[in-house]
Write a protein that binds this DNA or RNA. Sequence first.
DNA 1: GACCAGGCACATC
DNA 2: GATGTGCATGGT
Length: 218
Amino acid sequence: MRRVHITTDLKKIYDKLHAGLGPQHWWPGETPFEVMVGAILTQNTNWGNVEKAIVNLKKSGLLKPERLFKLPHNRLARLIKPAGYYNVKARRLKNFLRFLIGTYGGDIRKMAGRNTDVLRGELLAVNGIGRETADSILLYALNKPVFVVDAYTKRILARHKISAADADYDLVQQIFTRNLKKDVKLFNEYHALIVRVGKEFCRKIKPRCRICPLQKQR
DNA sequence: GACCAGGCACATC
DNA sequence: GATGTGCATGGT
């Protein structure tokens, strides 16, 4: 498929989603730091469960880099328990905090000032932060124009025959970034809409749904 | 009771 | 490089 068609298709999908569902106001989090924590906690986990964990951290007044980092593993694990994988995630949070504090003194504005590609490499070097988590942090916490890919995104492109079903993360990401304007607002909204529609329609109503903007109607 | 959710690292081949 | 597995909760 030629580039111009992909661009057109991607725009069509976006317009349809946006017209049907409206702006999603992502990421649901009050501060960039909260977004970062949420990005790690939501790995393979329902967002509702993550919210419970974040509420626990907030109520304890621990949603700050230094305080969270100082917390003993068992206490941290107990607080984030609702988010599942709590031992793994406690370790991953600590790894991230060690990086944030060690490299940027816990200063997120300082972190945001770093070159995006360099920063992405630094994040990926943290054990427990993979591509989706790194890109979520870059886009939703730091407002960098990075497209976030997830399982839904792959399914959508596959369904529209834009990419193969088993296309890997980097390829899918490139399809978006090379065919759309590198725009933070657009990337933000697009990924959020994909998640929203994936949740609400893709599984429940199948195989054909007239509301579902993901069904290619030609 | 099965299945799923906004992944990731690690072991093994 | 590809494939399989552990990690765990709470909602449907």
